[in-house]
Design a protein around this nucleic acid. Structure first.
Lengths: 245, 245
DNA sequence: CAGTGGTCTAGACCACTGG
DNA sequence: CAGTGGTCTAGACCACTGG
């Protein structure tokens, strides 16, 4: 009945177990379809009660990482189908013209080297310098979304001194750097926020959120911006008016 | 310590309590900002243990109906901000041209009188006849979305005998009834599926899903169709390619 | 400082799945 | 029929909130 070792005594047992399972999924030790030990086994192995093990599995289930089947067990699920349906988001736009008061809070502006994944998306070399701009969007002082934009620094040298609270990034790119974004490729999905996101958005950790990832191109078909936004789904509803033909 | 009365012995206590609270919200007995009894009070009032009361509140919290604050209590939250951002869904379209095999299963076709809310959306009289078509969309035999379309029957008399499995509803409207849909107003939000939806989609009850509600108009600006779709968010990702100007 | 939700325990009985 | 997750109990200690 020996307890699992907790590096940090403040981390609750259910979280330790959760992190362990997620790590095993990310490292490839656990794969789609694999069976987890039963709740009773997990409880015994980790020296916790079955209810605590269940708590962990409930969270993982809500996040879509595991699937439980009565009488059979708990299984890893890790699959995604990609749908070719059109959606749209440009949070900075005129999205709030109906009695809401939008505002923006700068969270951070940093010059960082591009990691491999990001470099590929922006078609630049790994390690090339990027400007990363992280902002919090609010409506009537309620936080609604976290937006992060990454732009190769070569396209906008000095931008970090020009960005104002509540200013449009696209407008700035156009007026100061002559860069006009004309096209974007966008992915939208539901995700669950992590702890730091939940604090900024003032929602509970693991709440479902809208994740939007986009690459924007200028008229020379250059990849200019990679953006990633996390939007609260509990108080947000999207509206659109569209032509069917 | 008297148990709450269970009409149906098969309904678990946490569900009975959940339904009771939802009913109080829907009837207006509980409003945004109201404080619920504490977990210990709920447990005592309903003759259940505190852990069971907590289970109920966890579900309501995940659905965004209540908010818990340590030391303060549990409060009703029932607010939505509407965002003016464009999105799009036309599930029946060419959305799956990339190696996926889409299919459609008819669930039900019924002629029903329009309820007040629906009548208003379609600008017809309450009680006017509608055709309600409910279909399940699958990709590679995995259920992905439930779609329900409601059309005033006067626009498509006899349609119930024409609908084929896997046929496009819009195409049918155009070819057989001369109705061309040209414009739609659409709302998109994240929601949580109920029990019957979860069974059809083969996911757990209360999983987050994309809810899309739309009204489609023809070229004479007549409201032709109200549609409502519930899409799994665990395996679906939306893609869009868009022009920014 | 009384009350709150967060975490946790060590049990119990149930219906169900799968070999 | 052994094992599984689902439901449920009656306790416990904790940090935190708010009057």
């Amino acid at each position: 009945m020996s307890r699992i070792h907790r590096e940090d005594e403040d981390i609750p047992y259910y979280k330790v177990l959760k992190d362990k399972i997620i790590e095993d999924i990310e490292s490839g030790k656990l794969n789609h379809g694999d069976k987890l030990p039963s709740e009773r086994e997990l409880a015994e192995q980790f020296g916790i009660s079955r209810m605590t093990a269940r708590h962990t599995l409930s969270i993982l289930e809500r996040e879509g990482l595991v699937e439980r089947r009565v009488g059979a067990g708990t299984f890893i699920t890790n699959k995604r189908i990609e749908l070719d349906t059109i959606t749209f988001n440009s949070f900075s736009k005129n999205m709030l013209g109906r009695g809401y008061i939008p505002s923006t809070k700068k969270l951070s502006i940093q010059r960082i080297p591009a990691k491999a994944v990001l470099a590929k998306k922006l078609r630049i070399s790994e390690g090339e310098e990027l400007i990363a701009i992280k902002r919090l969007r609010l409506v009537n002082d309620t936080p609604v979304a976290i937006e992060e934009s990454c732009i190769p620094y070569k396209y906008c040298v000095g931008i970090e001194d020009l960005i104002q609270e509540d200013a449009s990034l696209y407008q700035l790119l156009e007026e100061k750097f002559g860069i006009v974004l004309v096209r974007a490729q966008e992915y939208m999905q539901v995700t669950f926020c992590d702890e730091s996101e939940s604090k900024l958005l003032r929602i509970k950790t693991e709440s479902p959120c809208i994740l939007l990832e986009a690459v924007a191109f200028d008229k020379e078909e250059r990849e200019i911006e990679f953006s990633r936004s996390i939007t609260r789904s509990d108080i947000v509803r999207y509206y659109s008016e569209l032509r069917l033909r």
